[in-house]
Design a protein around this nucleic acid. Structure first.
Lengths: 232, 232
DNA sequence: CGGCTGAAGATTGTGCACAAAAAAGCGCCG
DNA sequence: CGGCGCTTTTTTGTGCACAATCTTCAGCCG
């Protein structure tokens, strides 16, 4: 199946930071890159849009999504709600193999940090959160969090301050210990703080991006009224 | 835009019970119904698939999703986690207008129940849950729950027992009172019980659907090995 | 010299045609 | 009469062409 190949590869390129936010995704270019027509590309782009990874402007084209500051805040807010529930769900009991999996994931992240590979560390950090969702044995929850983590990576790529790393592994370790101990309330609070620290590492000033927002607003206004200066 | 029209109308037809689960969604038929080519139809189907409302089998076509018993359980589990977080988030404080909105929604649901319009009541019940998500002022949370509610409606349509109605409004009222009182733990518990009652109203026996599952399993096995009797 | 109008270029939206794969129906052989 | 293989038919997967729209830019007028 060509469609899924285009979708998976493009998604991997976006999440793996190969395609920075704001990159124009011209259909012909992608079609040429995969040696296929525009049909599969359009299918993949539609899926990517649903995941919030690309923005599809009518008659303008597709772009790698640039989460606005407000959207980034909403993303973190949603993760607080969802992952709080996940943590509370996991606190009850879990087989030892599950805990080992989480420990292994943290160690891999530590290893990436030591090698100075920040991109891999950020990716592993996301994998840790995703692994927790997987441990709920609920594919629906897992899918929701996967989408949230992907978009969070995008938001971090856009608004990341210089010198700030992703998830600190010691926070992950503490969270793990709290969950293993069964202290639900404290574990949820730790997750809240953890996500708060992640959000605090970003620069979410809403005024700095006034110029591009202005253009978007004008476009939206013109599209709404349909009676502006665009007509001949 | 034709695409969005096809998408919105088809979605409305599925959620509104006009298209029962399992219905074959032939592209040509939909294209003819909307007087357009198959392009917009494919786009709409891709979006619908991402929302979990249709199942898209390769080289077979699109069908209105029939959530399996396991998937239905996962749906309710995800809603427990997500809506539990929503309730906890809303417990803090909310303007009076918000509470009025919720009361109004409950009364509309009551009205539908009195008129014997069960389909509308189920729809209003979903709107109540959706309204709570909207009151978080978080579009991401709202979108996630909208998808979950839609799929839940589908699951109910498939597995509903005879004589069981949807959300009881008095449970909604009690939940509302608890949230307004600020009793987070008790409100979350009420939400849990409420969703549990909804799930209990379904017949989620996994063995009864052995026959159709068998065919799906055989198809999957054939697709995996690629060396079955299908080849010529 | 600035702003506006017009055309040209580029890109997406849509429809149509062909190919491939699966399903169904049918004939044939045991 | 039942099971198997082939053929036909239906439907999706893909590519290509045309039209609509937006952007850009050159030329013109005030």
């Amino acid at each position: 199946m060509v469609k899924q190949h285009v979708f998976a590869s493009t998604r991997e390129a976006i999440v793996g930071r190969k395609l920075p936010p704001g990159t124009k995704l011209t259909e012909d270019v992608i079609a040429a890159a995969f040696n296929c027509g525009r049909g599969p590309v359009r299918w993949a782009l539609a899926r990517l849009q649903d995941e919030g990874l690309v923005t599809l402007v009518p008659n303008r084209g597709a772009f790698v999504a640039e989460p606005a500051p407000d959207e980034a805040k909403h993303l973190f807010g949603a993760r607080r709600i969802l992952e709080g529930g996940v943590v509370r769900h996991l606190c009850r009991r879990l087989p030892d193999e599950a805990w080992d999996c989480l420990v292994e994931c943290i160690e891999a992240e530590d290893h990436a940090h030591q090698n100075g590979n920040e991109a891999a560390a950020l990716r592993l950090s996301g994998d840790f959160h995703l692994l927790m969702a997987r441990l709920t044995s609920n594919p629906v929850v897992e899918a929701m969090l996967r989408e949230l983590v992907s978009r969070t990576i995008l938001a971090i790529a856009v608004h990341q301050r210089a010198g700030t790393s992703g998830c600190r592994t010691h926070e992950h370790r503490r969270l793990l210990a709290l969950m293993r101990a069964g202290d639900a309330d404290e574990a949820v609070r730790e997750m809240d703080n953890h996500l708060g620290a992640l959000e605090a590492g970003l620069d979410l000033s809403t005024k700095r991006k006034a110029a591009p927002d202005l253009r978007a607003v004008l476009q939206a206004a013109a599209a709404t009224t349909r009676s502006g200066p665009a007509g001949g």
